[in-house]
Amino acid sequence: MEITIDIDDPDPLFAQLMAQIKQAVIAGELKPGDALPSIRQLANDLELNNKTVAKAYRLLERDSVIQAKGYRGTFIHPEARANSTVDLNAWVLTKLRETIEAFRETGVTDSEIRIAFGNIMNNHKN
């Protein structure tokens, strides 16, 4: 199965990689247990930085689409098909929209929401 990325595409490279692997899982081109190339191999073949591919693999592992098995390599997760349809970004957007709407209904201003959001994110980082 071949993967294609476009470096001029506005979508980040790691997101293109993730989307194509998920699409391949949904289409049945990648099946549970199938081995994936190593981070270095894929990065070299696509002429990308190792960190870009590592980020895509890390997020796919978080979404339970792939699973790393130490030195044996990276494989497609047994539940990959079901998990590939879950879009965490869309879920985050929906949840945030609902929360922001609730704040606005109680009279909180947009600037107060921004400051509070920034503070929480900054504290979380620290």
Binding site: M1, E2, I3, T4, I5, D6, I7, D8, D9, I21, A24, L30, A35, L36, P37, S38, Q41, L42, D45, L46, E47, L48, G73
Partner: peptide, 11 residues
């Protein structure tokens, strides 16, 4: 070329 291709098969 802005597009790059790779095989998703480990070597």
């Amino acid at each position: 070329d802005s597009t790059r291709k790779a095989d998703l098969m480990p070597r």
